[in-house]
Design a protein around this nucleic acid. Structure first.
Length: 584
DNA sequence: AACTCGTGTCATTGC
DNA sequence: TCGCAATGACACGAG
């Protein structure tokens, strides 16, 4: 892993050196290799390459369509599988090689084709060169599956720049740089800024100032040695033989040509001892005719990085590994790809800045790390936790996250997904997990959050963490618990709302029932009053005085005494009497 | 473009 | 005093 890290930073160094030299040119500094004519020629070559690339891209799209026509959608899995045509295989220009774990990108299966964008991204993440016209056309891949294009969109690049400019990240980068300087055999330029922790921040140069095709031949030669030493020559032969037309488009001075072929071939040559201790690489995956989601775990490029550093035997599947299913996303656009390995340090406070601007950086950043941090799960945290005998609880990711993962899995294999839906195929690592990995917190976020206080303190006492790590761990624990609390709170709130709504409905029903009863009672009362009135009049009509005359109901009324006897009371008297009572 | 919804996060409060 | 849960408020992305 460290070798690859070194390689990574070396490439980044080259890129940055290139940028700095261009800046020097802008400032009038003279360098033989960067004289104006040379740059002009390079620029013309660049344009010519771009035109050729456009043509080739068009051809490749046509080939992709043809390839899709040969694919059959599995309605159950959402995967595109080759149509079962006896004796008929996908018509790929590259004859299928023997399927071994170390043959790279040669299988004609549709899965490989549909995952090629992933490979592009993985490779781009491995070597995040800031080239607007960064193509990987020399990869020994079936041209059908090639989907060349810019590997880094401007906004992603901006996010990358922001990330690189973070102080703690730079600190971490500085550490990595030191490792790189110590371990790399090729000479680095005597540019003090290269070793400046803030050097990467200086890389935040507008893209327009970056001429992707201008690479100092001196360093090409310099790096060529180291690069070629990392990639067996036979791979180049293979590359040339398989994609001659592509090589014709890219001259050796293109830094992409230098970097990507070794990268792509690295996996294929892993069996030959180069980075020999790497575990499954992209090439290994590429040779599997189909992927399960668990297998997709190994698609992460960084795993091949980390595996070189971590004990292969300590690799344990964790939930994060399942996240690698996002590598199964298939987009025809390789944007959002050219991010480097995510194992960078950054402080929580630094990330807060990103937090407040998630639209510009954080989301992309998350996606950026969605791939790259996978391997780190197998790297530092696991290896350390294993060393201290901590139980592997990586598989106990937050349920929500697993649910998201499960949701994603159902669609993760659909190839050639439109960019609009691309994000659905990114299973983002939780941000705190990214942060923990970036600061190499030697414990899982799940443990940090969910362990009881005593266990948590015990765990913390077992690890020597610096201030930044301690602060991050505390923040992770606080945020994680608060996140769960917020979820519970909202759940309760929803339950309360639902309960109140149910209560409201029942109360409305009760109200309706009571109103109905009231109307019924009123009707009954009115009916009884009518009956009483008719009875009253009937009684009155039967009453006679001494002369046999009937009493008028308007002049007399019937009243019942307490003992049950009935009296006929004159109404006038009554009113007079009531008046008298009122006067007295 | 405005709006709604879901979610993460922070600040605050109370236990 | 510290840890934690609960919750309001805010910001943001997605639809």
């Amino acid at each position: 892993m460290m070798q690859l890290f070194s390689l990574f930073f070396s490439f980044q160094d080259m890129d940055l050196i290139d940028i700095l030299w261009k800046q020097d040119i802008d400032l009038g500094a003279c360098r033989e290799v960067f004289d104006y004519n040379h740059r002009q020629k390079e620029h013309e070559l660049q344009r010519q390459r771009e035109l050729e690339e456009e043509k080739r891209l068009h051809l490749l799209r046509e080939q992709e369509k043809a390839l899709l026509a040969q694919l059959q959608l599995d309605e159950e899995t959402g995967e595109y599988i080759p149509r079962a045509q006896p004796g008929a295989q996908l018509q790929l220009p590259i004859p299928p090689l023997e399927v071994t774990q170390n043959v790279s990108f040669t299988d004609e299966s549709s899965d490989q084709a549909m995952f090629f964008d992933d490979y592009l991204e993985l490779l781009a993440e491995t070597f995040p060169l800031r080239h607007n016209t960064l193509y990987v056309s020399q990869m020994p891949l079936p041209p059908d599956s090639l989907t060349p294009g810019p590997l880094m969109s401007p906004d992603l690049e901006q996010a990358w720049m922001e990330l690189l400019s973070l102080p703690e990240l730079q600190q971490c980068l500085n550490m990595q740089m030191e490792d790189t300087l110590e371990t790399n055999s090729y000479p680095l330029p005597n540019n003090p800024e290269v070793q400046n922790p803030n050097f990467y921040a200086m890389a935040n140069i507008p893209e327009g100032e970056i001429n992707s095709s201008v690479v100092c031949p001196e360093f090409i030669g310099t790096f060529d040695g180291s690069v070629s030493s990392m990639s067996p020559p036979n791979n180049f032969v293979q590359m040339d033989s398989e994609t001659p037309q592509l090589n014709s488009n890219f001259s050796s001075e293109n830094i992409c040509d230098i970097f990507y072929p070794p990268v792509s071939l690295e996996g294929s040559s892993s069996q030959q001892g180069l980075e020999g201790n790497q575990s499954p690489t992209t090439s290994e995956i590429s040779n599997k005719s189909s992927f399960t989601h668990m297998e997709l775990y190994s698609l992460s490029p960084g795993e091949s990085f980390d595996s070189g550093n971590s004990n292969p035997g300590s690799e344990m599947p964790d939930s994060d590994s399942g996240l690698s299913s996002n590598t199964s996303r298939n987009s025809s656009s390789p944007t959002k790809s050219a991010y480097g390995d995510g194992s960078f340090g950054y402080s929580d406070s630094d990330m807060e800045e990103l937090d407040h601007n998630p639209g510009s950086a954080e989301s992309d950043y998350s996606e950026m790390f969605s791939l790259n941090f996978q391997p780190d799960d197998l790297d530092t945290p696991l290896s350390i936790s294993t060393s201290v005998g901590q139980p592997q609880q990586q598989n106990k990711e937050p349920k929500q996250y697993q649910m998201e993962l499960a949701e994603e899995n159902g669609h993760s294999n659909a190839p050639f997904t439109k960019d609009k839906n691309k994000k659905r195929f990114y299973v983002r690592l939780p941000r705190d997990e990214q942060r923990a990995k970036a600061l190499k917190i030697p414990m899982s976020v799940d443990m940090i959050i969910n362990l009881p206080v005593d266990d948590f303190n015990e765990m913390m006492s077992k690890h020597q963490l610096n201030d930044a790590q301690l602060a991050l761990v505390r923040d992770i624990r606080r945020r994680g618990k608060n996140k769960v609390a917020a979820q519970n709170c909202r759940k309760r709130k929803m339950e309360n709302i639902l309960g109140l709504e149910g209560e409201l409905d029942s109360l409305k029903d009760e109200k309706e029932r009571l109103l109905s009863e009231k109307r019924q009672n009123a009707t009954s009362l009115k009916e009884m009053k009518q009956q009483l009135n008719s009875l009253y009049l009937e009684v009155f009509s039967m009453l006679r005085d001494e002369q046999g005359n009937s009493y008028s109901p308007s002049e007399y009324s019937l009243q019942q005494s307490t003992n049950g006897s009935i009296f006929l009371v004159p109404r006038i008297k009554k009113t007079l009497k009531s008046k008298d009572n009122h006067l007295h």
